[in-house]
Design a protein around this nucleic acid. Structure first.
Length: 577
RNA sequence: GCUCACGUAGCUCAGCGGAUAGAGCACUUGCCUCCGGAGCAAGGGGUCGCAGGUUCAAGUCCUGCCGUGAGCGCCA
């Protein structure tokens, strides 16, 4: 238990329980005026009687001797109990944290089996910034959930099925397989798609062929399936290139496209029918989950099978739920999907529960995120109004990072610079997606995300690189200082130390709300505390060896927390930049 | 029309029911014989959209209104 707040809370708990006559939360929170404050007495005053200050005093009397962990306790204001940690307590806890491979972060008490559904690009279409956000946020959620000790199943639910493949395949045949493969191979997915679309809209003959091709595809025609697979495999190559550049965990093993569920769709309908939930409406098979209404305030159906007999995305999404729960045995399903799909996912959840496919103890959670906007506050587009190609965006990030490194650190060899530019540029893009509350839209801004000031990836990476530089310069092996016990003399050392011990809390706050930005905020605060410490407390030029070792310990632990925290965000921490 | 989300400094954003609402950018002012100045220290700048309510305590919870964006049956 590295987080001193938890230690204090558990030590105060018996005292609060004694005063309250039953369990009562000490409500330990950060404080401006002390290391922490316990606010529990204020709420207790009403039920227990007496003024909040009296209650607080009774709690402190009942708590007995806390001098092993607290240097002082003080009742302040209306009844806050201000808490100052004892330096030896912080020092001991920090020493324990340093020898812990998890850096004090608790593992989950009840490991779960969790599916994370994210990224989900469409075959034969360019990925856009929305997919980027899903991919980046989802990847961080995967890392966090995994680090907590849960079993994680990644699922990349790519859009690899649907009527659009009729026109795509016909266009492929028109231009010839080799030439089409050439176009698609270089990643010009949108150009190909648009051309097919244009012909579909312009030519009745093409439209007819496309529709016939859809029938052949759905009927399992071997040649048609072969052509379809060309799109899937070329698109997968493109997706993998993006994933490789981004450094996310997704691989081909995680692909669970819509087509993978085709064989289950009839079963979904049958099971809904036998459960008595299915109704026919305008020729379509639908379910009416309670509490959903349309624009005329009438019950809103979820269309499972369309009037023409085809299946829509609702059927597939229901099939995935059945598959995940019954075949893969998951107890938690996380959907990293844009906020506009909230209602759809609520309906999937509702129908699956009505049908009895998921029990009350199974988590179905929409990790929603807002849109990426341009400086005009509208959906991000390139100057010409086209959607922005992700490869080009990542290229630009790396180029800008390379230019910044070349300017600030001209001595760095070119090869090393290219490598570090990748970490910094990609890190900046990812951090921009992660550092704000995910539910809000955010404004894409190159200059801000690549700035070395403020809450950005480069600032955090820079703090990490500086620390590595200290050890390099001194020729000291970092692992050699890890068994030291730090001594906190300067207030900045103390502030940094307490911050370090809060890593556990930061990770769990991020985990609780599936909110990577909470971890970002913590890491930024940590980096700020470190630079302040570093500015005022000489490390290598410390007055004596004991102080020097202690400060090297703080440096090392800070760097480890920064690197571990960034890793949980899916961002690399270079040793030089 | 109904539903959902958002509205905090000039801009971009944090803020867990708790004390005087915080960063970064921009602006002003210090600090380069100093371990990486890609930095640090400090200053100015706020009726937390508006109005009610709950509470000992509301930027935070509830209701209504205003503004912005999105969703609302056979696209995914």
């Amino acid at each position: 238990m590295a987080d001193p707040f938890l230690t204090v809370a558990s030590r105060l708990a018996p005292a609060f329980a004694a005063v309250a006559g039953g369990p009562a939360d000490a409500v330990v929170r950060p404080s401006d005026r002390a290391d922490a404050q316990a606010n529990g007495a204020l709420g207790l005053a009403k039920t227990v009687g007496g003024s909040p200050r009296d209650v607080a005093q009774k709690v402190l009397d009942a708590a007995g001797d806390l001098s092993d962990i607290l240097a002082s306790t003080e009742i302040a204001g209306p009844g806050f109990i201000n808490l100052v940690f004892a330096d030896p307590f912080i020092e001991t806890e920090l020493a324990r944290m340093s020898v812990d491979p998890r850096l004090g972060v608790r593992a989950a008490a009840q490991p779960r089996s969790v599916v994370v559904d994210y990224s989900a690009p469409n075959v034969a279409k360019e990925m856009h910034v929305g997919h980027l956000r899903s991919t980046v946020i989802g990847d961080s959620v995967v890392r966090l959930v995994q680090f907590a000790g849960h079993t994680v199943l990644r699922e990349n639910h790519i859009g690899d099925w649907g009527t659009q493949f009729g026109m795509l395949i016909e266009h492929l045949l028109d231009v010839g397989e080799d030439r089409a493969a050439g176009e698609l191979g270089v990643g010009d997915l949108d150009g190909f798609y648009k051309e097919a679309r244009r012909k579909f809209d312009a030519s009745e003959e093409f439209k007819t062929r496309s529709r016939e091709r859809v029938v052949a595809l759905q009927g399992g025609d071997a040649e048609t399936l072969r052509l379809w697979r060309i799109f899937v495999s070329l698109s997968t190559v493109y997706f993998n290139e993006i994933y490789r550049r981004l450094g996310v965990l997704l691989t081909d093993d995680d692909l669970m496209g819509e087509s993978a569920y085709n064989d289950m769709l009839d079963g979904v309908v049958e099971r809904l029918r036998s459960a008595g939930l299915l109704q026919t409406d305008d020729g379509a098979d639908v379910v009416f989950p309670a509490g959903f209404t349309n624009r005329d305030n009438e019950p809103l159906p979820m269309i499972v099978r369309k009037g023409d007999g085809g299946y829509g995305y609702a059927a597939t999404d229901l099939a995935t739920v059945i598959d995940r729960v019954e075949r893969r045995g998951v107890t938690s399903m996380l959907y990293v999907v844009g906020a506009p799909q909230a209602q759809h996912l609520q309906m999937v959840d509702a129908v699956a529960r009505m049908a009895g496919w998921i029990d009350a103890d199974v988590e179905f959670h929409h990790i929603a995120f807002g849109s990426v906007l341009g400086s005009d506050r509208k959906m991000l587009k390139s100057r010409s109004g086209e959607s922005i190609k992700l490869i080009a965006l990542l290229d630009e990030a790396v180029e800008r990072a390379a230019a910044a490194i070349a300017e600030k650190n001209p001595g760095m060899p070119e090869e090393e610079r290219a490598r570090v530019a990748g970490m910094v540029g990609i890190g900046a893009v990812k951090y921009a997606d992660l550092s704000g509350d995910r539910i809000k839209d955010y404004i894409f801004d190159w200059d801000r995300m690549l700035s070395f000031d403020g809450n950005t990836a480069p600032y955090l990476q820079y703090a990490h690189a500086r620390i590595c530089s200290i050890f390099r310069r001194a020729g000291i092996d970092r692992s050699d200082v890890r068994t030291a016990v730090p001594h906190l003399g300067d207030p900045r050392e103390r502030t940094l130390a307490v911050r370090l011990l809060r890593f556990d809390a930061a990770v769990w706050e991020a985990l609780d709300g599936y909110s990577p930005h909470k971890l970002c905020t913590y890491l930024y605060d940590l980096a700020s505390d470190f630079t302040s410490f570093y500015e005022h407390c000489p490390v290598l030029k410390a007055e004596d060896d004991a102080v020097r070792t202690s400060r090297l310990f703080l440096c090392d632990t800070t760097a480890r927390v920064l690197a571990q925290g960034l890793e949980l965000l899916g961002i690399e921490a270079p040793e030089q930049m």
